[in-house]
Simulated assay, not measured.
Amino acid sequence: MQIQVETNKDISINTQNEKTKSKFSKWVKMLFKSKTGTVGLVIVLLMIMMALSADVIAPHDPSKTNVMDRLLPPVWSEGGDSTYLLGTDNLGRDILSRIIVGSRVSLLVGISAVIVAGAIGLAMGLIAGYYGGFIDRAIMRVVDAFLAIPNILFMLIILAVVGPSLMTLIIVLGVTTWVVYARMVRGETLSIKERDYVNSAKAVGAKDFRIITVYILPNIISSFIVIATLNVATTIILESSLSFLGLGIQSPDVSWGLMLSDGREYIATSWWVATFPGIAITVTVLGIIFLGDWLRDVLDPKLKAN
């Protein structure tokens, strides 16, 4: 009898593994059928690899100044130097090295801030949607208050009072953008909690925490992942905007937004100082958006139904 039980268990595990492999294979096929999805994945993977190996592949120290080589144009322009492929900035720092190292800070801020915002929004949305009543109304009024104030203005006020730093920037971006997740999760939770399997779980005495984590959360996580992926792009733009205004990343740290700020005075005479960081931001954001659109097509059950 025990042998039979173990055999059935093994068969069940093997069946589950086969289903997982089949689903993964299906996603891979869909990815390569989607040109934008493939391009997005390649861009994101390249940016992550560049950020992880920045110290190794950067040809120069990104903070090292050399006034003798200041404002050198890219290597293909007249007066360019093969030592500095994308030229140098107003302090003689290598732009290519700063872009490579800056990718690490920009991606770190973008991903970390989304994790903070997603955790807060997920918790608030689940609580509001599941319990309803006064708790729901109170959380939604807080959400309305956050939505009434423009995000960038709210961030500027907090950073001006507290002072800019990497950790402060991550926390500020997280606590000011969680409302997007909260509204989505609340709406999904309100719909799911009325379904038969949730009512059945309540009828047999399942505790609220188990119902939320086992029956509700798995059914909203796909939509949550899609929104989180797309919001990484938005957060990178916000970080660049704040750094451009002088309230984000500060020297000697390097970020693409800070590079844009350094190059704005030279845009007419030394276009490369601001152009290449701007291209890096644009390419990265487009890659994340392309990947997010593909994830939405794959994971969003509403689109599947259509």
Rank of each mutant, 00 (worst) to 15 (best):
I211H: 14
V254A: 01
M49K: 11
A160V: 10
G129F: 00
V105A: 08
V67N: 06
I157V: 02
R98Q: 01
G257F: 12
V162E: 02
I157S: 03
G246I: 00
D300I: 00
I211T: 13
P73Y: 12
L303F: 02
A51H: 11
K26T: 05
L166D: 10
D61I: 13
E239Q: 10
A160G: 04
I170M: 03
K304Y: 11
R93Y: 01
Y130D: 00
I289Q: 04
I100H: 08
S223A: 01
K304E: 13
V298W: 12
W27D: 13
L156H: 06
S25E: 14
V273Y: 05
P277E: 12
R141Y: 05
N90F: 13
V175F: 11
D144N: 00
A280S: 03
I171R: 02
R70M: 09
A160T: 15
T20R: 15
V175E: 07
Y215L: 12
A119Q: 03
L245T: 10
N17R: 15
V226C: 13
R183P: 11
L122G: 04
T282D: 02
S200Y: 14
G248D: 03
W256A: 06
L153D: 10
N17P: 06
T83W: 10
S165W: 04
E265D: 15
L41D: 10
I95D: 07
G80A: 07
A51N: 10
V39Y: 03
L291W: 15
W272M: 08
A201F: 14
L190E: 01
L41M: 15
T38I: 07
E239C: 12
A145Q: 02
A138L: 14
A117P: 02
I95A: 06
A206R: 13
F290T: 01
N219M: 01
M124W: 05
W178Q: 09
F32R: 13
L122V: 12
P59S: 07
L31C: 09
A128L: 08
V161N: 13
L238N: 12
V44A: 09
L242F: 06
L260V: 10
F244L: 10
T213R: 03
K302M: 02
I139M: 10
Y197C: 01
Q16G: 06
F244E: 08
V298T: 14
N14D: 12
V109I: 15
I158C: 14
I192Q: 07
W76T: 14
F290A: 06
V180L: 12
K33H: 05
V226E: 13
A274V: 00
F224Q: 02
S53H: 12
V214I: 09
P150S: 03
K304I: 14
I221L: 00
L260G: 10
M1W: 04
L286A: 07
V75I: 08
T65W: 07
S22N: 11
